[in-house]
Design a binder for these strands. Structure first.
Lengths: 189, 189
DNA sequence: ATATTTGCCTAACAACCGTTAGCCCATGGC
DNA sequence: GCCATGGGCTAACGGTTGTTAGGCAAATAT
């Protein structure tokens, strides 16, 4: 069970950062959650910021891996977009706390990690944009401002985090489906 | 010019809270921005949290007023939704910093203000939902999960804040138009 | 001319912050 | 049986936090 205590720590830190925000979470809060003294945390990590790093980059890598998965198989643009949305929603719903930190708290990263993080984020954004571009070329999608559409889609799929409840009636798969339909065909009859 | 110094303070606080987050912004930071000592801030406000209150509730009231404006005139549901989106985008773009605080930092409000704030927020959400319901009844909109659609729309219009640039090429009016089209008719050709 | 208010100051408060140093003890491999 | 390692402890550090008390000078109102 190497690192099992570290895993527990990161998990608790994730929950705390998600609920109170990184800046408002103290090492003593976190230590209390772990049932130990604040100083003892440093047997597992080097600094508070390192935990934020671990959480943010793990999540970033998950999203990028999902992008690779989508691009590995050949689909048309609509199918690709649907799959990208499905994977995105699934990653978010699998760990809403970590997702909240990924979405809201990364700005408290220190340089140079912050820059590295933004680069990864941009890479993901670019992957989605590429799918939309393909869709335009295949004459499946309307001609739209691609950057604008990308951001709109990402806003929609990221917002889930604000209200998603694992005990709620909607399963991630359903959410992804509804969302895909909404994004593709809109609200009008 | 009664309160002009207070206005300046709230403005500076808004900027600071938006950029660094409420918890990571110190009274000494803020005092430095004002060119005075930290203790002097208390000639204008009672506490750090009070400033957050002022910012959040002012914004909340703006959104609720916009809702009234929409409901004052008779339109069909599509026109209502377009107008609601236009006003929403306009409020956000008029003061992106205050909007950021309204969207992201309200959770640092202390009770009972936090609860009051959530109530106002729910009221607004309900207003949008009501418009969608009308649209369904008028047979203009698809039958969808109304709550789900409401949250999706709000996510989209709130996200603008993350990338809107007053110096950018898109004016608020245009953004609102594009967004309305996207929400109403989706991406597919 | 006098009284009041506004807006700032210095000094200080108790509490809390992230982090380090140094020590101890239980566990498990050799 | 010995030693390394992991995982905790106490004590303490220098700094920062929001906030209060009390005073002072200039502007304003009477």
């Amino acid at each position: 069970m190497a690192h099992s205590r570290l895993n527990e720590l990161i998990e608790k830190a994730t929950k705390l950062f998600a609920e109170k925000g990184f800046a408002a979470s103290s090492m003593r809060d976190l230590a209390h959650e772990m049932g130990i003294e604040a100083a003892s945390l440093y047997s597992h990590i080097h600094s508070k910021e390192e935990m934020l790093e671990i959480i943010c980059f793990k999540k970033a890598d998950q999203f990028l891996a999902a992008l690779d998965e989508v691009n590995d198989i050949y689909f048309n643009a609509e199918e690709k977009l649907r799959m990208a949305i499905k994977l995105h929603v699934s990653i978010i719903c699998k760990n809403p706390n970590a997702s909240k930190v990924f979405i809201d708290e990364w700005r408290h990263l220190e340089e140079p990690h912050k820059l590295k993080f933004i680069e990864k984020r941009n890479l993901y954004e670019l992957g989605i944009l590429e799918i939309l571009k393909t869709g335009e070329q295949e004459n499946l999608f309307k001609e739209v401002d691609l950057k604008f559409a990308t951001l709109t889609i990402l806003s929609t799929v990221n917002w889930i985090n604000q209200w998603y409840n694992p005990q709620g009636k909607m399963k991630p798969e359903e959410i992804a489906n509804e969302l895909s339909n909404f994004i593709l065909t809109g609200l009008k009859k």
